[in-house]
Write a protein that binds this DNA or RNA. Structure first.
Lengths: 236, 236
DNA sequence: CGTTTGCTTGACAGCATTCAACGTTGGTGG
DNA sequence: CCACCAACGTTGAATGCTGTCAAGCAAACG
């Protein structure tokens, strides 16, 4: 939970994060906005539903999940966030967070005080526009998850999940064909609307079919094209 | 598709729509932003996925659905919008709409040119903040739908759907216990991740149990509390 | 090294889907 | 005005995917 000095202008995530497309002088303005960093240990919550909302968070290192709970205690993982992605947008609506954000590994986030973000985005068109794009992108992403949850079968869901994860990791310079899952089968299942046993069985099936090599959380994609086909040709 | 003159300051939806909480002078500024209205006939699309994004739309009268399609042609209804609700937020992300918006009855919308909204919200803090809240609320709503799609059974899904619909209608001055569905069983099913037969069967079951009176699209809620219990006590 | 947590696999059950037939409604044209 | 048609809705029977329950195994952690 220590705080660090931080600068967007020298951050290697500036091509993925809030500063996308900004000029040097604008970046220096951002530096005044994003002033502190915070560490979150694995298993700890960055915020919880009901917490007062004051700040957005940009993931700098590590990995998070967000989840909502219904009154009767059921939990739904609504997303997984990695470096360069924003957390906390849900809080703007009511000044309180609507979901939990939990670190799945030791992580660092940059604090973006929301009041100051609003102030600054009134001065800088590019920042304003970029921020709106990020919110809109989240809405579009959510629509994609609804499509997945509403109309796909277990195999397709897992295939979509893996393809999405590797694509995002690839954009961050990691391999497109090997990954280490940071979440449990249960968390994957919750996100995909499946039980953990179904997730496990589907991993095994993919392995039997030669699509993947699965060793617990180490996944190697052997047949990317095969996974893709699984998604596109389903029910046609 | 005719255009009309329009004024937020004299609109009876100003307590539900974009102008929520704004002062009189601010409302007059909004009038300069929201200048035209547009009619959309039942079955017509206000916009389609891929269309260039230029404007947001506030539903003035009528009823819409939004839906996304996957590459293989499956369709998922992602929401239903009624008077005072905003359409088009998905377009900000890529300057193209990511979903279709289709009128389920003859409707009217107010055009909110997006460039001008950004300009004006740089001048008026309240407008800026209100707009951000609306986007955030959409994100929170989507999380709720994910919870529904990911972890609820057919009966709970339909109960949540009906309770949400009546609550929104009630906020607009309609009865909290009687409603006319504007969408087909298939559209309800798509939204709830169910087949139309399952929706129909569940309606029948609710009727047998004395929770509802169902006559095609005319629904009367006989036991609101019973519906609520169905949601809260599920799987406990 | 033992305990806890997470993962895999099997057997069985249940809920929702699929397929099919029939009923209802509203619009259109004779 | 009525008949017909197309779209929508209801219901039944059978199938199948995913969930549930249970047992055993592997890995991580202190």
């Amino acid at each position: 939970m220590d705080a660090f000095k931080v600068a967007c202008s020298s951050c290697n995530l500036r091509e993925l994060c809030l500063p996308v497309g900004m000029s040097k002088p604008q970046l220096e303005q951002l530096d005044s906005l994003v002033a502190t960093r915070k560490s979150v240990k694995r298993g700890e919550a960055l915020f919880r539903a009901g917490d007062a909302f004051q700040s957005l968070y940009a993931v700098r290192t590590g990995f998070f999940k967000t989840c909502v709970a219904s009154e009767d205690g059921r939990e739904q993982v609504t997303g997984f966030q990695m470096a360069g992605e924003l957390l906390g947008l849900d809080g703007i609506s009511t000044d309180r967070h609507a979901c939990d954000a939990v670190a799945l590994e030791d992580s660092q986030v940059c604090l973006i005080p929301y009041n100051r973000l609003e102030d600054l985005s009134r001065e800088f068109t590019d920042l304003q526009h970029q921020f709106h794009k990020i919110m809109s992108r989240e809405i579009v992403r959510d629509q994609g998850v609804m499509l997945l949850l509403g109309s796909m079968r277990a195999e397709e869901r897992l295939a979509v999940f893996l393809l999405n994860l590797t694509q995002r990791l690839h954009a961050r310079g990691f391999s497109a064909s090997a990954l280490v899952l940071r979440m449990t089968r249960e968390e994957i299942g919750s996100y995909l609307g499946l039980k953990l046993e179904t997730v496990s069985r589907t991993f095994s099936k993919f392995q039997e079919e030669g699509l993947l090599e699965v060793k617990q959380r180490d996944i190697r994609i052997l047949d990317n094209e095969g996974l893709r086909k699984l998604v596109n040709t389903a029910r046609c």
